[in-house]
Design a protein around this nucleic acid. Sequence first.
DNA 1: TCGCGATGTATCGACTCGATACGTCGTGAC
DNA 2: GTCACGACGTATCGAGTCGATACATCGCGA
Lengths: 224, 224
Amino acid sequence: MRSRSVVLETAILGLLNSAPLHGYELRKRLNLLLGSFRAFSYGTLYPALKSLVARGLIETTEREAPAPTGRASGTRQAGAKSSGKAPLTGRRGRIVYRLTADGKEHLQTVLASSGPAAWEDENFDVRFAFFAQTDAETRIRILEGRRTRLTERLEAVRESAARTRERLDEYTLELQRHGLEQVEREVRWLDGLITTERDRALGRARDHSAGVHDAPAPRNKERG
Amino acid sequence: MRSRSVVLETAILGLLNSAPLHGYELRKRLNLLLGSFRAFSYGTLYPALKSLVARGLIETTEREAPAPTGRASGTRQAGAKSSGKAPLTGRRGRIVYRLTADGKEHLQTVLASSGPAAWEDENFDVRFAFFAQTDAETRIRILEGRRTRLTERLEAVRESAARTRERLDEYTLELQRHGLEQVEREVRWLDGLITTERDRALGRARDHSAGVHDAPAPRNKERG
DNA sequence: TCGCGATGTATCGACTCGATACGTCGTGAC
DNA sequence: GTCACGACGTATCGAGTCGATACATCGCGA
């Protein structure tokens, strides 16, 4: 089982936890969520949905066409009412997926637990995207784990590069330099997030259950 | 034919253009070359080598054990002499690959030409790694192509994010912000490289074929 | 009215990775 | 001395992924 599938499944579960969705919309949100990092295709999404249904973590709710006939104007309108069986594919028959009780439970388990280090590393972005559904302790653990593995990798690359430096041309060198810089930048980003997260946890602990509204954003500045 | 294979093949050809290598070493250099960007596994490398051999772009030269018996001290030593047939796998029989005339020609063609835009985008890092074997005009074209597609993507993500901003939680927002920032940074990096490349081309044109040693590094500073 | 692009579900072939197998060699711990 | 362990080295396999594509409906503008 390649780790990716677990990620996708987690991401699907996480999105469906907010609202039932159909495949097309799911993919759009997924790729918006992960933004410039990653994109999933239908060839990945649909099999994953199938598997989740088979395991009883999600269930389908077939909806029919948005409106049988007319529908004069109206810009958007997402909620379809009226009744009638849609032929599944054809006449706008979309398949809406919804979390089951088992699915909700499974999602909570996955979000709270930490798999092997490699798992978290590969799928950091998805984990991060669902931080809002996780407790602070887990958040910090994940952030620090990511930081550790990033610096380890950094060290390995740097060392390996030092042993071969003289053999490489200027462009290769520049490419490496740029790569290292990007990673270093991410480490600093993580540092900011960790600090924010710690401060927040501390603040919450200090005034216990007093009426303090959470500081809303992890907003760590780092001048661009 | 997925574009990746073309990249790998180009990278292999490019590396073998400098010196004949065997698979293991090839992989090491490949992953050093691409540094923190990407890594190829044997499951990808060996089939690619096989295909290249089949198409006559590279050829194998079987070498035997580095030295028959003794070998008291000596830290490294790569060149093996002596003679004797090594049983292919077993007794250190490494398979050394070398470019053929066809391979050299093919490499030059690929490095000079530009495939479809998507090709260059996916494989920008490999193209860049072999800039030293390319002429200035091609270099600039590739850099600008990359820049264009990057900014297009940036625009698309930004626009799509603007339409959904209010629906996303703080962490998702932060993830997107970070992603955009990384891409913006890369655009600025490209700008620096393009400028350097242009200046260099200009300089070379101005003093024509006078004895001016090339400015060695594309070194664009951009304060960290 | 005709085409084109968005919406929508779904599959296929090609490609890739990580794990693993198998084997040699050098080195250091016991 | 020997034996485990990690580096070197070639090679394959299963599972997961992507891009292209197919098919069908709908809204819109030329």
